[in-house]
Nucleic acid binder design. Structure first.
Lengths: 132, 132
DNA sequence: TATAATACCTACTAAAGAGGTATGAATTAA
DNA sequence: TTAATTCATACCTCTTTAGTAGGTATTATA
């Protein structure tokens, strides 16, 4: 029951961008020196955020990344789901295809749905700005 | 961010014991046929519950397992922690020894603490009886 | 137009965890 | 004595985690 480094680092990267944005693109080198995460590992995480439209990128000299919205317009939940894939505590709850054959009679399913709900409510009820 | 089979099965085993208890010890064979979990795999999970005192065991012929308390006296949280080890979403929150060197200035730590709290409140606020 | 700095892409790897099986020993009611 | 059971330990395969490595494409700037 752990959030992986992908999710944790993604959140720190987004926070770093929010804190250091001055309208310019910020290179991974800068984020790396502030956050102590290797550039090479971030290069694996950041494209997930770019493809989802959470951040904008510019290649080449003076390139880098910047937020594409205001900090208060990001929920933590959407950032984590982007990097982690899902925040559901069991696979049955992720989508229709993962439902197990016992779901009809499963006495634990409602419990897990409730747990998922409190996690989502919590994570989607907070924005990047709240963490600044 | 997933509960493993250990935790999920532990909960189902506890529920099965609660539903089928008639003051006698229930062998894994019976639980296996009802729950569709192999005896051999349960033999790995159940000792965690026994050692923690959540259930009582009797070896030998006519042996098996039974709850050591009433269903309403178990929180789901304690059952899951017993099998999963911890429900904390990040390792930093498990105990003192896991704290990372950035904890002082970490802007995400409070967020994770809050997430841990809602998970614990939810899981500790429900008992086995609630799931019956 | 050359250059340096950057994002982007694709492999690769070592270690750990997940999800089991297998074998056999100890215990106990009937 | 026997059959049924828990208990203990080792083993196995697959996937995930947490990175590292090397090279390519792009771009502002000198």
């Amino acid at each position: 029951m752990k959030i992986s480094t992908k999710g944790r680092y993604a959140l720190r990267i987004m926070l770093d961008l929010a804190q250091n944005s001055k309208g310019e693109y910020i290179p991974l080198k800068d984020i790396s020196s502030r956050q102590g995460i290797t550039i090479k590992y971030m290069e694996q995480i950041v494209p997930m955020l770019t493809k989802a439209g959470l951040i904008r990128s510019l290649r080449g000299n003076n390139g880098g990344y910047m937020l594409s919205r205001q900090p208060e317009e990001y929920t933590i939940g959407e950032i984590l789901r982007c990097a982690e894939g899902s925040l559901a505590p069991i696979a049955c709850l992720e989508d229709e295809t993962n439902q197990c054959p016992r779901s009809e009679s499963c006495k634990t399913l409602a419990f897990w749905q409730g747990m998922r709900d409190v996690i989502y409510e919590y994570a989607d009820g907070r924005t990047l700005k709240d963490l600044l």
